[in-house]
Design a protein around this nucleic acid. Structure first.
Lengths: 230, 230
DNA sequence: AAGTGGTCTAGACCACCTT
DNA sequence: AGGTGGTCTAGACCACTTA
């Protein structure tokens, strides 16, 4: 028996570690959206050959994080208001579907996890700790989605949400968004308590719609004129 | 200017052509679901080195067609009843979302394309030509989805639908399915005529639900006991 | 007309499975 | 222990873009 731990990630193939490294470099802003990702430079930066880097990039293309053009290589996926809108529309549709299922299958332990995540989110929000709030928000969602028993849908959301999360980390939430999120989460909790699948689905859809608008504004793709348009 | 045609696919890189070749070999049944895909054998079969094959496989993994395990290589994605169900649930959610949009944006030309595709589908169905029916069915969907102006959602559906299409080609439709599809399509056309987004969304959801059940039965994952269960 | 950078090949390395 | 097959490296090739 070897001494290598069973922990994943430390003994993974090079292309796998490189993939995570590139992902990190994209999220940290080292590679900005739209920027080329030259394999030779990455080979020097990471200390490996070009082929595992190419493989990592192919995988990241599958996740939608980068785009690859024949004979022109990889670039970080460009994000604009339309892309953000489309991704949030996908999330709204899938999360509504999953929440409807989760309402019917959730048990006491699931409800407990939901309450705990929500409490952590509200604490982070009251401290103004955006990083902790984003984390707790993810935790909240991660407590709901597995209950729908549709890992493929969870995967689709996770892949597309990555770019949005990096934007969220960079730009944060709008001034009134935190309070709105708390209110919307509590609405969702109430729908769960009452086992009201339709209400939960509706809450999630409006939740995503509001999150979309807030992120578009925060990322600077649109003026906040919609706040008081009447 | 070169003499190379602007047609894509003929002058693409090797990994791109290999990717389509593998896709073909999966759909044709040369690689059955769950089967290993050895790179060395493919190198001999396609006459290329192993690396472009690896890249093609990484891309196909991104599409969900194959799975890659570290140090164990690629295998064709295994499909079971639960996977089929999950994919159809994703399709139902996304297609309902997109159809709701399409109802609001469709014009006369779009309606014309819809009628034409439906007519071709019904002709193929009356001839009992399953292959032409599958093609016309795709055509019908392709006439609707672009109207939603959400290429990311179209992409998600297309990627996941590929495996289902191959199953459909292999196993065909159930005895009463053709007539039901025609009825459901006509319901959808009526919803489009009346610009009723909610009705269209509902039709699409039940359409996907029925298609799911039929495919699960046709693929041999479940007995057709649900036909008369009351 | 070089130069840049993506793409491909051949072979060596190494992890895992079989005898 | 040996074999099978996935993984990685170094270098050559070639498409596209600079001047």
């Amino acid at each position: 028996m070897t001494a290598t731990a069973s922990l994943p990630g430390i003994a993974d193939p090079v292309y796998s570690r490189v993939r995570e490294r590139i992902r990190q470099d994209i999220f940290s802003g080292y590679f900005a959206p739209g920027a080329r990702i030259p394999t030779a430079a990455l080979g020097a930066r990471y200390g490996v050959s070009q082929m595992p880097i190419r493989e990592a990039l192919q995988q990241l293309q599958g996740e939608g994080l980068v785009t690859i053009a024949p004979n022109r290589g990889a670039s970080v996926r460009r994000v604009d208001a339309r892309f953000i809108s489309n991704i949030y529309d996908i999330r709204a549709a899938l999360e509504a579907m999953m929440v409807s299922r989760a309402v019917e299958t959730i048990g006491d332990d699931g409800m407990f996890a939901l309450y705990a995540a929500e409490r952590r989110f509200e604490e982070a929000a009251s401290r103004g700790d955006t990083g902790a709030a984003v984390a707790a928000n993810l935790e909240f969602h991660d407590a709901v989605f597995p209950l729908a028993d549709n890992p493929e849908a969870v995967d689709v959301i996770a892949r597309h949400a990555e770019l949005l999360q990096s934007l969220r980390r960079r730009f944060g939430y709008g001034p009134h968004r935190m309070a709105a999120i708390i209110a919307e989460h509590r609405q969702l909790l109430r729908a769960f308590e009452q086992r009201d699948a339709a209400a939960a689905a509706l809450v999630v859809k409006t939740h995503c719609e509001h999150a979309k608008r807030d992120l578009v504004v925060q990322a600077g793709f649109a003026a906040p004129e919609a706040e008081k348009r009447a």
